[in-house]
Write a protein that binds this DNA or RNA. Structure first.
Lengths: 331, 331
DNA sequence: GCCGTGCGTGTATTCGATTACACGACCCGG
DNA sequence: CCGGGTCGTGTAATCGAATACACGCACGGC
C-alpha cells in the first residue's frame, strides 16, 4: 500500500503538503493541488485510518451494544443505527450482549479499547457497573430502549403508557376481566414500566391486575411459552394474555398452538412490539408498536450531538396500539 | 488515559519492558513483572489498540457486508458471525448493503480503509467490481451464501438441491401439477441455483415447471406479494406457490391473506428459509431450512484460516426440507 | 532600496505502541 | 583472572498520518 510519503515523493512535495491537499486545509496552490491529486490516484493511495485516528484522537466509529440481535426488535434498531451513522460518515461496531451482564461489560470495554467516538447501549439489566468505566474515559454515552439511573447519559426510548392505556380499555371493553401478563424481567426498566403502566391503566378502569396472573419472563421465546403454560394452568385461567415483548409473545403463541387453544375465542393474545408477520397470524395479532426506526435514528443523532459537545435532551417517542383481531371481536 | 510511558515511569522501567510484560514476551524478571503489573492497575492502564494496530499491521477486526439486516436470515448470519469471531478474539464491523451494488462497494472500501484483517461478504449480485480492490490490498476474503465467480475466494453456502428434490417429490405426491415459483433475482447465484435445482427435480419427476408460472422477485417482501398476485391472476393459476426466500414468502402469504385464499385448500405455499414463526401460521408453513448458524460459524473459521495463511476449501452445508401443513395433507 | 506582510511549503515533532539491536551484569570454565 | 556466553533491560527506530513552527519568496509602501 502506498503511503503518504510515496505520494509526496511522486508529486515532488512534502507530506505536509499532501496532507493539506487531502484535508482541504489552508491553501495549496492549484498546481500543487493538481500534482498531488494526480499522484494520489496514480498510486491509488488510500489514507491509513489507524494512523490518522491515532494522531487526531477520533475514529469516526460508534459502538453499539445490544442485548440480542436475534430479537427482531433489536435487529431493526441495529439497522436504523447503522443507517443513520453512515449518513454522518460514521461506521458502527457492534456487540451482542445476549441479555447477559458480563458479556455486556466485556463488550463495553472492548469497544472503548477500540476508541469508539461514542457508545450506544441497550442495557441488559439495571446493573450499571460498566458505566463508570465509560465515564472515566469520558466517552459520550447514549442509552437506548432501556433506561438505568445514571447521571448524564441521555436516554432514547419509546413510551408505551398511552398505548397500554388504550390496550387496557380495549380489553376491558371486550369483556376481558382476567388478564394474564407475561412481563419482562423486574431488573429492566422496560420490564417494570410496561407492567406498571398497564396495571395503572387497568386500575383506573376499575379492573386492576390480579397478582397471581402476572408472570415474569426474560425477553426470550422459551420464557414466553413457559409463562403461558403456567398461566393457563391456573385454577381460574386468564381469558387473554398480554406479552410485553415480541419474542415472549411468540413463545406464548407457540404454547397456545401446542395446547390447541383457539384464539381469541378461548384465549386472547396481545403483544408488545409489532413485527411484519404478526398481521398474518390467524387471527391477526393486536399489538403495541414501537417506532424502532425513529429510535435508532434519534439515538445516533443524540450521540453525535454529545460528541459535538452539545447537550441533547432525553428523547421519548410514543408507542401506539394497533388493534387487530387476536383479543376478540373488533369494535 | 494513562499511556505505556506513564506505566513505565511509575514502575521505574522502560516502555520496552512494559511491552514485554504485557505481551508475555522474552522473560522479564518476576519482580519486574510484578512492579509493572502493579503500575498497570494502579493507573488503570489500557493499551491503545490503534497504536498497536498501526505498528503490528493487524487490527483483530473482521468486516461483514450483508445485503439486508432486516432479513432475518441475514440477521441470524450476522449474529453467528459475531459470536464465532468473538470466540477467537476478533471484533466485527458490519455494513448493510441494502441489496444495492453501489452501497456494497462503498462499504467494502470503507472496511478496507479500516484495515480489517479479513472480509466476509454476502454479495448482493453477481457484480464483482469490488473484488479487485480487495485482492489488490490482499485482504483475505470469504464469500457467504451467494457465490460469484472469482478466483481464490472460498465460498460458504448451503446447498438446497437435495431438499428441493424432496420438496418437488412432496408436492407432486400431493397431486400438485401447476406449481408457481417466486424465484430470486437472476443475477444472484442463489436466485438461479434454487430455481434450477427445483426445476431439474421436477423434470426428473416428469412434471417440469411451466415457464409462465416462474416469476422473479428481489428477495424483498413487496416483490413476493406482487409475484403472488400476478401468479394467481393467471388464466390457469398454480395450485401451490414456492417462494425462494423468507421475505418473499412472507409477502406471498400476505397476498394470499389479502385475497382471502384458503391455504392449503385453495393454494399451497412453501418457503425457502425457515423462521421461528413459520410453524405458527395456520397452517404451519412447509419450508426448506438452511443451517444459518453453521454457515456463519464456518465462514468465520474459513476466514481465520485464510488469515493464518492456510488454504481452506469451499464449505457447503445442506439445507433440509421440513414438511408441515401448508402444501396439503401431511403424508 | 529596504523592510514588513502574507502566503505557500518544508522540517520536525507527535500520537502510543512494538521490536531490532546494543549494552552491562553476572556466571563459569580454562 | 580473563574471555565468552546468557540474560534482563534500555535506546532508538518505526508504523503513517497531522500539524506547530519556521523559512523563503514575492509584493507593496515608503
Amino acid at each position: 500500500m502506498a503511503t503518504m510519503k510515496d505520494v509526496a515523493r511522486r508529486a515532488g512535495v512534502s507530506t505536509a503538503t499532501v496532507s493539506r491537499v487531502l484535508n482541504g486545509h489552508s491553501a495549496p496552490t492549484p498546481e500543487t493541488r493538481a500534482r498531488v491529486l494526480a499522484a494520489v490516484d496514480a498510486l491509488e493511495y488510500r489514507p491509513n485510518v489507524l494512523a490518522r485516528s491515532l494522531r487526531v484522537h477520533s475514529t469516526q466509529t460508534l459502538g453499539l451494544v445490544i442485548s440480542d440481535l436475534l430479537n427482531p426488535f433489536f435487529a431493526e434498531i441495529a439497522r436504523a443505527v447503522e443507517d443513520e451513522a453512515r449518513k454522518h460518515g460514521y461506521v458502527v461496531i457492534f456487540g451482542n450482549a445476549d441479555e447477559n451482564v458480563e458479556q455486556q461489560e466485556r463488550y463495553v470495554r472492548t469497544l472503548l479499547d477500540r476508541r469508539v467516538d461514542g457508545l450506544l447501549v441497550c442495557p441488559a439489566t439495571d446493573d450499571d457497573g460498566w458505566v463508570s468505566e465509560v465515564s472515566a474515559r469520558n466517552v459520550p454515552l447514549v442509552l437506548l430502549d432501556r433506561r438505568i439511573d445514571v447521571g448524564g447519559a441521555p436516554v432514547v426510548y419509546a413510551d408505551g403508557a398511552a398505548a397500554l392505556r388504550e390496550l387496557a380499555a380495549h380489553l376491558v371493553g371486550l369483556g376481558h376481566r382476567r388478564i394474564g401478563v407475561i412481563s419482562g424481567p423486574e431488573d429492566t426498566s422496560t420490564g417494570r414500566e410496561r407492567l406498571h403502566a398497564f396495571n395503572d391503566a387497568l386500575r383506573t378502569l376499575g379492573h386492576p391486575l390480579s397478582p397471581d396472573l402476572v408472570t415474569h419472563g426474560d425477553f426470550r421465546r422459551r420464557s414466553g411459552a413457559n409463562a403461558a403454560s403456567w398461566l393457563l394452568g391456573q385454577p381460574e385461567p386468564p381469558t387473554v394474555l398480554v406479552a410485553m415483548d415480541n419474542l415472549m409473545g411468540l413463545g406464548a403463541l407457540e404454547e397456545l398452538r401446542r395446547l390447541g387453544r383457539r384464539i381469541p375465542d378461548e384465549v386472547g393474545l396481545a403483544i408488545y412490539d409489532d413485527q411484519p408477520w404478526f398481521p398474518l397470524f390467524e387471527p391477526a395479532i393486536t399489538v403495541v408498536a414501537q417506532p424502532t426506526e425513529e429510535m435508532g435514528g434519534a439515538a445516533v443523532r443524540s450521540l453525535l450531538a454529545l460528541i459535538n459537545g452539545e447537550q441533547p435532551g432525553e428523547v421519548h417517542l410514543d408507542a401506539r396500539l394497533i388493534v387487530r383481531a387476536s383479543c376478540g371481536e373488533r369494535l
